[in-house]
């Protein structure tokens, strides 16, 4: 599976790079730390998921996980600092889609996050973002870099892929444009 360069044509006002290696298709985006750029990441997640062959519900789950991880990177990681970027990488293989979202912030420890399902936290206003990422993806891990920056790595296995003879049907998102 390959992804053509125009894949990134919807990206406006952001730096977009595309690279490939034989064993995996790779799409990379670098975004400014602006909340409006979250929609660019969502659009990329939708496109990559659709091309990978996920069903529509799983496609939404991947999109939502990317949305939450990127919001986390822009708002909590980079604190909307215009000098800092968010780096996103999608790796698609025959078995899975692996997504890396890296910020340039001070890092966080996911084990310290409160459980949003605990009775005492149920009515908390915040604290559900990483929970949803974990819920929607099959694997989740966080790497903190010594020089600064945190990378969220999430994996979705291609178990809910649409059979190839049904691919491309009923996908209302395909072909949508994004204002960025």
């Amino acid at each position: 599976m390959t992804f053509p360069v125009p894949y990134c044509s919807f990206v406006a006002g952001v730096i977009c790079q595309l690279g490939m290696k034989p064993e995996a298709s790779i799409v990379e985006l670098t975004l400014d730390s602006k909340l409006k750029n979250v929609e660019v990441a969502e659009e990329a997640a939708r496109s990559v998921s659709a091309k990978a062959g996920f069903d529509e519900e799983t496609e939404f789950h991947v999109e939502m996980a990317v949305h939450e991880a990127v919001i986390n990177a822009i708002y909590h990681g980079n604190k909307e600092d215009p000098r800092k970027k968010v780096h996103i990488k999608f790796l698609v293989t025959e078995e899975a889609i692996e997504i890396h979202v890296r910020d340039e912030g001070k890092g966080f420890d996911p084990s310290t996050l409160p459980d949003p399902l605990a009775r005492e936290n149920l009515l908390n206003i915040s604290g559900r973002g990483i929970f949803l990422v974990r819920k929607f993806m099959d694997e989740f891990r966080v790497a903190n870099f010594p020089g600064g920056g945190t990378e969220v790595i999430m994996v979705k296995h291609l178990t809910s892929r649409i059979p190839s003879n049904q691919g491309g049907t009923g996908r209302e998102h395909e072909g949508d444009s994004t204002s960025g």
Binding site: H67, I71, I125, R128, G129, F131
Partner: peptide, 14 residues
């Protein structure tokens, strides 16, 4: 709706 939107519904409810 994202996690912040859900939080906003909770905030409104409270």
């Amino acid at each position: 709706i994202d996690s912040s939107g859900i939080g906003e519904l909770v905030s409104a409810y409270t």
